[in-house]
Design a protein around this nucleic acid. Structure first.
Lengths: 217, 217, 217, 217
DNA sequence: TATGAATGAGTGTTCATTCAT
DNA sequence: TATGAATGAACACTCATTCAT
């Protein structure tokens, strides 16, 4: 089962959900096609289970991401606290993003698959609600959607690069999120910094700007 | 030929490039499979031609998008000038975004397909260079990549909604791009406004915040 | 019409009858597919007409091949007289052999196509009958079939080579046919010579052994 | 696998390699198209595997064909020894000849396919070399090619007939080969006999003239 | 008459899924 | 439980043939 999901993650990441064949997943897992179908009723179910496992592992390993305690922090620190482990997790599990962006998963799965998406979106919304309880629900929904979209878009760039380049993109990602959310969630007024060169004072001001995300050697 | 490309756009948009079948495209166009292959040598060529046409139509119809005259404008106005027609175009041609995000197009096409991507990315980079000529090349590349990613991510949300909701997302998209770029390209210091509720003064300050993009009823 | 048949000959020779497409023939002839079908009802008819033309051209240009006057000659000379122009013709019209060997032409055509084959076979039989009038019909049929098969097999080797090598194969072809037929048609008893090295006296004895067939530079 | 190859042999024999469809082969074998592709990666591979099997079966079942011990025999006896099992084998496996003559097999297969051809041709050359070691290589090549072509041409006639008629053609085939090779490989001078009626003494003289090859009733 | 776009059944091949072992 | 041969509908693509122009 685990080896099947790992194989699926590998194949999904390489060719995408649609182009991934169950035979290829079985082969990658070192089992026969028949065996795969004793664990999963169909190809969609593999993606769903994989998404669930990713979600659980994120919850288990990085509890702080989903803790409201973060809400007591200033925005910049909260973002650091929340984004760092998320970025790290996705760098080590790139198939998660693939799954998250596979809007072309067909049929009945869409509901289940969107469940993964909605689950994460709801988390973002809750966090926003802690910072700005007065925000109307529809506005909060939009802000959460936009923040989440920003995060996924930036993640793709982060994952697509390695080493120092990856670190730089991590900085850009954090900066873009901070700048987008600061006028809404922050208490201050001016953007204190940015991942963009030319503002080397960034780090000192407390806004997230650079570093980590890639803990692979 | 035109009806085939329109059918392809429709099918690509609905199921993505990989899952789109040439037979389905032919059926949607109301022709036989054989007819499709008198115009295109293979499935990839359809996507390439479609991408080229989109690019040309964008160039022809919205010359101002790619004009450096925009660079003399303040950032907020430049963004309005550039983003509005782009958003509008993509709302009317949603398959363009699908194509732009179809990283799973295989084989020889990849080069042509990436050409589309690179072409747009280069445009963004040029615009940035006009605003901040002193920015180092690698930093400019990253900023352009991030801005483009932001735009695509926001577009997806815009396209996914309709009516007032869509307009609201247009505001969020513009706000996110303005806030990301302002510290780098802008001359001012404070984010003067935002699409986010709670800052109703937004429109008055000249930052892009709401409006257009969806001219469909 | 003529250009169509020439195009057909070229395409048949290159890929064989089955793999030859009518579109390819039309393209090679520089006309549209529709034009082709105004001259021929279907693909088979092209092969039939081509075969007929070959037969007629052989008859017209090389009357002596089918003249019974040859029957007054000794076997060796008759073979020279008959084979030389035949070999020459086939070297210049290689599609003829292709057609002759295309036993996989399907359907109704087979009858027409075999007509070409039968026509040539009958000629061989007639020639044999002149030499050995007493030979029983069934035996004559077999001898003719075998001689014709020998000829086609040798021709293929001849056509497959060029220059001196081709000439050498012409010698082998003539030798094989002479040796096969001599005990039946000839008056002598010993094989007087051969195209095979080691018997350089061959040419002097009057048996066909080498030379010509390839008049292309 | 075996049933698939048998089906393929049947279809190839009936319509030739090019016109044979994999679906037809699967249907003839009583399996689905998908099943065929679990054993063979593509159509070419079927022909290659079939050819290999034929070659191996010829080698295993008729070792004497490829034994140099035959070289100690007089030509007539050697031919009997070698040709009889070969003719017999081909009468029972007519698709082998079809494959051998399928010069229109495309693409990568050509190499493998020609390998089959070359393999047999080399055998003939070796046999000739034993009889006439002094023969120059190029001459030996030509003699082998011609003898092989003769054999294939005669085989076609043999296979095309049945019963007594087939036997008669076997006689003609042997006679043609004996007469072609005798002046080169034989020690005597006169053609001692022939398959052709009118020379009833043939059998007595030791030259191959008639009989077997068709052991089917 | 010549065209060439259109046809649609057919091709070689793939793949999610099943089932006897 | 695990296998892997089997399935058959579907896919990308071809081609002999038709027909409106």
């Amino acid at each position: 089962m685990t080896q099947l999901l790992e194989a699926a993650a590998s194949v999904f990441e390489q060719v995408g959900y649609t182009a991934a064949s169950t035979n290829a997943i079985a082969r990658e897992a070192g089992v026969s096609p028949g065996t795969l179908y004793q664990f999963f009723p169909n190809k969609e179910a593999i993606a769903v289970e994989l998404g669930d496992r990713y979600l659980n592992r994120m919850r288990e390993a990085h509890t702080q991401v989903f803790t409201e305690a973060n809400a007591s922090l200033p925005l910049a620190e909260m973002l650091e606290t929340v984004l760092d482990p998320l970025i790290d997790f996705n760098c080590h599990n790139p198939a998660f993003l693939t799954l998250l962006n596979s809007s072309d998963i067909p049929g009945r799965l869409v509901e289940d698959h969107d469940a993964l998406h909605e689950s994460l979106l709801a988390r973002v919304g809750e966090l926003i609600a802690v910072y700005v309880p007065a925000m109307p629900a529809d506005q909060r929904t939009r802000t959460a959607a936009m923040a989440f979209a920003l995060f996924k878009a930036g993640l793709e760039l982060v994952i697509a690069h390695e080493g120092a380049e990856r670190s730089a993109y991590v900085g850009e990602l954090k900066a873009s999120m901070y700048r987008y959310l600061e006028p809404v969630l922050g208490s201050g007024c001016c953007d204190p910094a940015g991942g963009t060169a030319g503002n080397p004072a960034g780090e000192a001001t407390g806004s997230p700007a650079a570093g980590g995300g890639d803990r692979r050697p």
